[in-house]
Simulated scan of single mutants.
Amino acid sequence: MSGPSPDHSTEGFDFIQELDQLATSDEIVDAMERSFARFGFENFIVTGLPHPDQRIETLVLLKKWPLDWYRRYTHNGYDRHDPVIRLCRQTVQPFEWAEVPYDPETNPKGAAIMRGAAEFGMKQGYCLPIHGLNGFEACLSMSGPQLDLTPQTKPALHLMAIYAFERARQVLAPSPQPNPLTAREKETLRWAALGKSAADTGEILGVTERTITAHIGSACQKLSAANKTHAVARALQHRLIEI
């Protein structure tokens, strides 16, 4: 007989609460290692994507990668040919490495990169692009030998990844900000954080779904968030809402 299914939303919020108590990037890496291991991940990196005149190592916020692979990757400028990074630039949706399209014949360096990662035990992976209204900000790419990626775990991982990025950025470059949200925007995001759809929230608050969608859109604009999940993560991070 199988045991009870884990509550992934609870795991996500527990992770968020833990991050709020941490003061250094090393502590955040340790917390990510423990929490993401529950989903089968062993390695991860949080980084911005460089422009042609930048080196990716200058944009890395957090990482837990095999040292030799990191040295090989940065020394050879693999980010210029990495199929995962190419797709990360093109989408706001999380994706599995297995979903990344590339042609080994037209992108032999990309194929070599994927083989090289596999040599270091990084065969399966999951990437979460993090975009703002002004364009790309960062991505969190994770890998492990046997991943727990289901319709139930992916939303929790998405929120955890965005929050980890926000917490790392806050720790590395603190910047206090006033609460720009209206009371109704805060209430709308709070229900979104609890997993309610716009239709559900509209019914709870006695307004139309269109009204809730407008509040979410306004909150996203004020928080420079690309979508509802991103806005919830930022609102929680800066304590603009409470659960």
Rank of each mutant, 00 (worst) to 15 (best):
P104N: 05
P104C: 06
E105G: 04
T106A: 13
T106L: 12
T106K: 12
N107A: 14
N107Y: 05
N107V: 06
P108Q: 03
K109Y: 00
K109V: 14
K109E: 13
K109I: 15
K109R: 15
G110Y: 06
G110K: 08
G110S: 05
G110F: 07
G110I: 07
A111Q: 15
A111D: 15
A112Q: 15
I113M: 05
I113P: 05
M114I: 12
M114A: 07
M114G: 03
M114L: 09
R115M: 09
R115I: 04
G116K: 09
G116R: 05
A117Q: 14
A117V: 01
A118C: 07
A118T: 00
E119I: 07
E119M: 13
M122G: 01
M122D: 00
M122I: 12
M122R: 02
M122V: 00
K123S: 11
K123Y: 00
K123C: 05
Y126C: 10
C127W: 09
C127Q: 12
C127K: 09
C127D: 15
C127E: 13
C127F: 09
L128N: 10
L128V: 15
P129S: 11
P129F: 11
P129K: 11
P129A: 12
I130T: 03
I130Q: 06
I130S: 00
H131E: 03
H131P: 01
G132S: 06
G132H: 03
G132I: 03
G132E: 04
L133F: 00
L133E: 04
L133P: 01
L133A: 06
L133N: 05
N134D: 14
N134V: 03
N134H: 12
G135V: 03
G135E: 03
F136A: 10
F136I: 14
E137K: 14
E137Y: 10
A138E: 08
A138W: 08
A138P: 01
C139W: 09
C139M: 14
L140V: 15
S141T: 10
S141I: 09
S141A: 15
S141R: 01
M142K: 00
M142A: 08
M142E: 00
M142N: 01
M142H: 02
S143M: 04
G144H: 02
G144L: 06
G144Q: 04
P145H: 11
P145M: 02
P145W: 05
P145C: 06
P145F: 03
Q146F: 04
Q146W: 02
